[in-house]
Design a protein around this nucleic acid. Structure first.
Length: 927
DNA sequence: CTAGGGTTAG
């Protein structure tokens, strides 16, 4: 200040002073200093100078003080030249006062001040930020009229502006017409595509730029990285990463952040870790990316930990707190969620719609709908996400009424979108409300959302889960695009409805379309293999499991054990079991029931013992498996002990399926009186399955007296299950009481009930051959029949006598023997013998139980031809070897599989489902 | 004149 008082005389002094102020201006770092320099200029009488005014306007705008910029501009109004106009326009634009900037542009045009090439970039920027298409037209026109159409800076600004307005066509047009382009032109184009989600185009422009010889800089890279991430183009992303490593832009924060963000999208957490560690400079964006990235990868604890770590160094911004709130929501950590929300309120963060949506979601996930609603009600503006989040929050927490009310309110100012419909459809699935789903479906079609993938998937799911398989299949077929979720949904539905053949067909169709299975596919498909005994597909899925590194997942291992045990390979089931490092109660149950199916009761019991020793607490289902295993191996004492232990030691009240197992156990062991006493003394109402078990046992042991009493009990129950009716009818038939047989058959017919026809199938060279009872229509019928007759002659000599009590028709003796020949398992076995190498083992599947005579017959065959024959019937496996069977002739049992009642063993075979493909196909299936 | 980070649903 003192220097000024010394007096300023003459040109030279003035000049010195001029440069002094200039130097002072450029070294100003805060607003206070700026005010000092400003006073200096005023005191020195230089405040009329256009040059200093411009400088001051820019400086004030740098320090976010547009008011001062404006007042300086106004004071100087007489001397306005284009330079000053440009400065004020730039200042306004810089401070986000875009309409003010445009006002000044209009004013200067009115005053006939001619804009120059420095005027337009700011003006264009303001138009773009305001999304004012009218103004854009005027300005673009002015640019062309004044001959700036080829100006590099102006064109770059135009590209950027059109990009912001999502007018990529126009952006491209400007770009293409440019006589010469620099790296900014390319960057503006790439970032325009990228920011608007045109990822393929962004990558394409990036490649074009590289080909035309423009060296990519930090801007280029950080614009193209989101495109790589969005497209999940891992290799492309790594290529860009390589470029970064080679060039000098490695230390750029935005570039590193872009890489981090991309690798999070690829879920390559190790790469993220490495990039993060290598970063010398990090900023708040870096932290936000990793907090958000961890949260999206399901590492919610880590995300919260990082947040706590970060707040020591940085003050979190809106994006930080919303990122950590997502983690809170997923963890259900209401306490921390509230704490963060309070922090937001206390520090007066300006929450935009997205931030509010995230807070609503956090509260909804934590079940605090009151808090969620409060945030919702206090929002300034709502978008579709707000409504959808609030509505699905209500549904998820069972507030259906509130959700519906909100839905109606929503329709007043916004139309539902695909996500709204998906939310509503999944609610229908939850409530099994197929009528509402149909209504929604109409609305969906009206609004044209039926072609949307996620809506299609939701429709598929709701129809399948509500039992409308035809609707579901129809929906599937009309979908124009399908993704992995589509396939998984349809496969899971097939699995649920035991449409195993259709399910496996779907799996192979999916593979044909080049889609790789994931965990959900595998968990949906393995039960299909179990049902159909599709060995090859099962093994193929095991291959995928290994390739996808899913072996360590417990549910996958469990499904594998079940698959191998049900497709005939106890050995592989054991191998999988032994390789599992973590075993849960389902694992043990699967292994125990596998042993049970193969008649390895002792091993089943040993497994059960081991399970208890390793600390796994038994549940009610594992007891079903244990008693089942005992019953199939004749371990009456052990079975009884388990049954008693269940209540006494584990406090598990026996359910109907446990009683059924016990009746089966006693019946199979020939303890008919005890079985009857057991049924009569149990606290629950006996159902048809119990009398059925007992009756089968009576039949097998030839105890006609008891059978006659029991069959009456069974008939009294008047079960709708065709299996028990047929059993009763069979007993009457074997007693020769044909009148009763006819009565039952009539009543079955009247009620429209029919038993599945028997069928057997065998897989040879990856093809499945199916045989129905008395089937004559297959190609090799003649040879098969001859072979059967041949075998019968041989076994007759060895003492085989056909047991005609298994023929349940009122016909003559000869005819009865003929009927036995036609049993489907015999056809399948003979067909197998004809078409496979001598000495090789055979595996035959049957949808119903093997009949007693066929069981004996197969034992003879295994001895005559010296082959192992593995037969899976509705109940278990029978391994025939040299005249004996692994079931030790305990094949008798309930006609209908009682294990259906047990949840885990839901997928057991009962005969349903097979008939459907028999009707569709003939004898050969390509699965 | 150009760049990087946040929301719902199957």
């Amino acid at each position: 200040m003192k220097t000024i008082k010394l007096g300023i005389v003459g040109q030279r002094t003035e000049y010195c002073f001029h440069s002094l102020i200039l130097r002072a201006l450029s070294s100003v770092t805060n607003q206070t200093d700026l005010h000092k320099v400003h006073s200096l200029i005023v005191v020195s009488g230089q405040h009329q100078s256009t040059f200093f005014c411009g400088k001051l306007i820019s400086k004030y705008s740098q320090f976010k003080d547009p008011v001062s910029s404006l007042s300086i501009f106004r004071i100087n109004s007489p001397t306005h030249n284009v330079y000053l106009w440009n400065t004020i326009i730039r200042a306004m634009t810089h401070n986000g006062l875009w309409s003010k900037a445009l006002d000044f542009y209009t004013q200067m045009r009115k005053l006939n001040v001619k804009p120059d090439n420095y005027t337009f970039p700011s003006i264009i920027n303001s138009c773009g930020s305001l999304l004012d298409l009218e103004m854009v037209k005027i300005v673009h026109n002015d640019v062309l009229e004044m001959g700036f159409g080829s100006d590099l800076y102006i064109c770059n600004a135009l590209i950027d502006m059109y990009s912001r307005m999502n007018e990529l066509g126009r952006a491209r047009e400007v770009f293409d017409k440019m006589p010469s382009r620099d790296v900014v032109s390319w960057n503006s184009l790439v970032s325009g595509y990228s920011a608007n989600g045109y990822w393929e185009e962004a990558l394409e422009a990036f490649r074009e730029g590289r080909l035309s010889g423009v060296a990519a800089d930090a801007f280029t890279v950080s614009s193209v990285l989101p495109a790589c991430g969005g497209l999940m183009e891992v290799e492309q992303g790594q290529m860009v990463h390589g470029l970064v490593e080679k060039s000098g832009i490695k230390g750029d924060i935005a570039v590193s952040n872009g890489l981090l963000s991309m690798y999070f999208k690829f879920e390559r957490l190790l790469d993220c870790q490495r990039i993060f560690d290598e970063m010398i400079f990090r900023d708040i964006v870096t932290w936000n990316i990793i907090i958000c990235g961890f949260s999206h990868s399901g590492l919610y604890q880590e995300s919260i930990k990082l947040f706590r770590e970060m707040v020591y160094e940085y003050e979190p911004d809106l994006l930080t707190v919303t990122s950590v709130l997502q983690a809170c929501g997923h963890m259900g950590d209401l306490r921390f969620g509230r704490y963060v929300h309070d922090y937001i309120l206390e520090n007066r963060y300006e929450c935009d719609t997205t931030a509010c949506n995230i807070i609503i979601n956090m509260y909804a996930r934590c079940g605090d709908l009151v808090a969620a609603r409060q945030v919702f009600d206090n929002m300034k503006r709502w978008d579709l996400v707000s409504w959808n989040s609030m509505i699905s929050g209500y549904f998820e927490n069972g507030f259906n009424k509130e959700a519906v009310v909100l839905l109606k309110m929503m329709r007043i100012d916004l139309q539902p979108d695909s996500v709204t419909f998906v939310t509503l459809l999944s609610m229908c699935t939850m409530l099994m409300d197929v009528d509402f789903a149909r209504e929604l479906h109409c609305d969906i079609i009206k609004r044209g959302y039926d072609s949307t993938l996620i809506v299609g998937n939701a429709l598929l799911d709701v129809y399948a889960k509500c039992g409308k398989m035809e609707h579901s299949v129809w929906q599937f077929e009309i979908m124009s695009t399908r993704d992995i979720v589509t396939w998984n949904t349809v496969i899971a539905a097939c699995s649920h409805y035991e449409e195993s053949y259709v399910g496996l067909k779907m799996l192979s169709r999916m593979r044909m379309e080049g889609i790789m299975p994931d965990v959900a596919t595998i968990l949906g498909s393995l039960p299909l293999c179990s049902l159909l005994a599709a060995k090859r597909q099962g093994k193929e899925l095991h291959g995928f499991i290994i390739r996808l590194n899913l072996e360590s997942q417990v549910p996958v291992g469990n499904a594998l054990i079940e698959m191998y045990s049900k497709t005939g390979s106890l050995k592989n089931a054991i191998l999988v079991f032994e390789h599992m490092r973590i075993k849960d109660v389902v694992t043990w149950t699967a292994m125990i029931s596998a042993y049970g199916m193969y008649g390895e009761g002792k091993k089943a019991l040993r497994s059960f013992q081991q399970m208890k020793e390793t600390g796994t607490v038994p549940d009610h289902i594992v007891f079903v498996a244990v008693i089942y295993a005992c019953s199939h191996s004749g371990l009456v004492q052990d079975g009884r002990a388990c049954f008693n232990q269940m209540r006494k030691k584990y406090n598990i009240e026996p359910r109907i399926e446990h009683y059924a197992c016990m009746v089966d156990l006693l019946s199979r062991s020939g303890l008919l009186v005890e079985a009857e006493d057991f049924i009569l003394s149990m606290p629950l109402q006996p159902d048809a399955s119990m009398w059925g078990s007992l009756l089968s046992a009576c039949r097998a042991s030839g105890d006609t007296g008891t059978a006659e009493c029991v069959v009456e009990r069974l008939v009294e129950l008047n079960s709708d299950d065709p299996g028990y009716n047929v059993l009763a009818s069979n007993v009457y038939a074997s007693l020769g009481k044909w009148d009763q047989v006819r009565t039952i058959r009539k009543s079955l017919k009247a009620r429209g009930l029919r038993k599945d026809p028997g069928c057997s199938w065998i897989e040879i060279c990856n093809r499945v051959f199916i045989f129905g009872t008395g089937d004559r229509s297959f190609q090799q019928f003649k040879q098969v029949n001859e072979l059967i007759e041949d075998l019968n002659r041989t076994m007759d000599k060895e003492g085989y006598v056909a047991d005609l009590k298994f023929v349940l028709h009122d016909v003559g003796e000869d005819e009865k023997i003929n009927l036995l020949y036609g049993h489907s398992e015999r056809l399948a076995i003979a067909f197998g013998l004809l078409n496979t190498k001598e000495g090789s083992p055979l595996q035959v599947m049957k949808n119903l139980r093997v009949c007693g005579d066929c069981h004996t017959w197969t034992k003879y065959v295994s001895k005559i031809v010296q082959r192992e024959i593995l037969v899976r019937d509705a109940n278990r496996f029978h391994l025939f070897k040299d005249g004996t069977c692994s079931c030790r002739d305990r094949w008798i049992g309930a006609v209908v599989d009682f294990r259906r009642d047990a949840k885990l063993l839901r997928t057991s075979v009962s005969g349903q489902g097979y008939f459907k493909f028999l009707a569709v196909d003939h004898h050969v299936l390509d699965v």
